[in-house]
Amino acid sequence: MTTTAQPTARKPATMAQALTRALRDAMAEDPTVHVMGEDVGTLGGVFRVTDGLAAEFGADRCSDTPLAEAGILGTAVGMAMYGLRPVVEMQFDAFAYPAFEQLASHVARMRNRTRGAVPMPLTIRIPYGGGIGGVEHHSDSSEAYYLATPGLQVVTPATVEDAYGLLRAAIASDDPVVFLEPKRLYWSRADWSPDAPAPVAPIGRAEVRRPGSSATLLTYGPSLPVCLEAAEAARAEGWDLEVVDLRSLVPFDDDTVCASVRRTGRAVVVHEANGFGGPGGEIAARVTERCFHHLEAPVLRVTGFDIPYPPPMLERHHLPGVDRILDTVARLQWESRWTEGRGA
């Protein structure tokens, strides 16, 4: 792989295409990588992310399983025990729930309960989140369940480059990864070189996507583009917002997050998942514990409401949008400058 710039090699690609390429390259490189799930074979998955894999690697390496999520994950555990590296596709966020017992009782703790003798090099891909006009049970943001389960890494890409790089890292990881794919970013595009993908930061590192000085937006997955848009709009208000893409909820990158918040003195967490018991509460607590003396205002949250995911014709009221983010930024006690005074 060369790092020399090859302008002709960069072309527009969607996040879905980058994910497909990641699966393909991982399967080509490592014969123990097996893709399994509902409709992943002949059809190529309902989002076409596994398109072409069965044709290239055969039905044993990319297999249409019976329709049973606990069975898919449970058999994948056995395959991992035997040395394979299964990549499981759950068709939709809300249809991964039947597999939760296998996830919580086995996948997450197998390494621990066997004192390292039986690792679980498993990747569980879950399309998640709303904003695609999906009817009931097709738009959940279920990340809080996973990050509340010790032993799981929880990763979510927000860019085309990360979709490729993080999925490759997830498959290569010797520990299980819940890999949350933001559905509404599947068709997002960026210039990208599929034959020489740029290396990305490892799992467990956050990235500053937009540097700024007045406040930090902490976000991930489907809410990253919304936050970037909000940051642009905020310029008109005189706010220069920094946007941090968390990328990995577990492990959590306290260092990058806290460095940003200490610099700006203000923080807002933005995610689609409902607020109560959601990731934002944990993130706000961590930031407050670590950056208390640098904060000008309480850490605020912009999240989905504490309601079952709404029907598609109403979902725009539920999802964090630019206006709600800016309204929240406005509440960051801009009159306050007390930490500077105290520091003197």
């Binding site: 606990a70 069975g71 994950l73 449970g74 058999t75 994948a76 555990v77 056995g78 395959m79 991992a80 025990m81 035997y82 040395g83 394979l84 017992e101 296998q102 009782s105 086995h106």
Partner: peptide
């Protein structure tokens, strides 16, 4: 956790 070891056996044998 009752019966949860059964799919593991299937997966291992399949592998």
């Amino acid at each position: 956790p009752l019966a949860t070891q059964l799919p593991h056996a299937v997966g291992l044998a399949h592998a």
